[in-house]
């Protein structure tokens, strides 16, 4: 498997608070990797570090073989995109929202039109082009955010609790979209979730984060059937007290 991300001794502190400590991990091209753990253990910070929205306190981030991604911020950031728990919506049409990543990459108008239509079809929002984005429901807005994030075909898609605020029907739709993005576009997906059922449904490999430490990384099957760490077992079985 081709290595896409290599994280070496990565730590992040905010003031005196250590949020992540000595994270070491490899993420491979085309996989769905999930950071799992209870709220407040540093999952979102982990994704923000990978997206270079935050600078690590120490450690190294190697992306696509380029030594030290932080020094090549623009190159790296243009090859990934991130979705937040509550997607931000530009106050304009759905079309303009989805087209944004292509417009700033100076893609020609005709190509933009085709790619936006394809992306909206992939997320089940065909025909929504002219609608004002602020009038979309929560589930539709999240799907539009997916279309906006994948329209320029990033190598990596980072998802921070992508279904945390959605009803079960929309959760199922979003999970379908995540699978489609991986199978049709080959995008590497890295997600953060506290929802063990969702991780079990869609992830290939899982890393369990507890108190800023990555305590175990393994395949989904292994983590959910024979976890190596007693704390992983406790978390998966709802017995973890924090």
């Amino acid at each position: 498997m081709e290595e896409l991300f290599r994280i070496e001794n990565l730590s992040k502190s905010f003031g005196n608070k250590k949020v992540l400590q000595n994270i070491n991990l490899k993420i491979f091209r085309g996989e769905i990797f999930a950071f799992m753990g209870p709220s407040g253990v540093g999952k979102t910070t982990m994704l923000r570090l990978l997206n270079l929205l935050e600078t690590p306190t120490s450690g190294k981030l190697i992306f696509n073989g380029n030594d030290d991604a932080i020094l090549q911020k623009n190159y790296v950031m243009r090859r990934m995109s991130m979705l937040f728990q509550r997607p931000a919506t530009f106050n304009t049409s759905v079309f303009n929202n989805v087209a944004y990543g292509l417009v700033i990459r100076r893609v020609d108008k005709k190509t933009i039109e085709k790619k936006v239509i394809d992306a909206l079809a992939l997320v089940g929002l065909a025909g929504y082009e002219k609608q004002k984005a602020l009038t979309l429901s929560g589930g539709e807005a999240q799907r539009m955010a997916f279309a906006r994030a994948i329209v320029f075909k990033p190598d990596v898609l980072l998802l921070d609790e992508p279904t945390a605020n959605l009803d079960p029907a929309n959760v199922a739709k979003i999970e379908d979209i995540i699978r489609k993005i991986r199978s049709e576009l080959g995008t590497t997906i890295i997600m953060a979730s506290h929802n063990i059922y969702q991780v079990r449904r869609i992830a290939d490999r899982v890393g369990i984060l507890l108190n800023g430490e990555l305590i175990e990384v393994n395949t989904k099957e292994q983590i959910f059937t024979h976890p190596n760490d007693a704390r992983s077992y406790a978390f998966i079985n709802g017995e973890f007290i924090y």
Binding site: N51, L53, N74, M77, R78, M80, S81, M82, L83, F84, R86, P87, A88, F90, Y100, G101, I104, R105, R148, A149, F152, L158
Partner: peptide
Amino acid sequence: VPQSIIETVYTLGGNEKD
């Protein structure tokens, strides 16, 4: 303008000018 809008621009590959 929400901070999330600014971060979304960065996550979609935008720079300070964007």
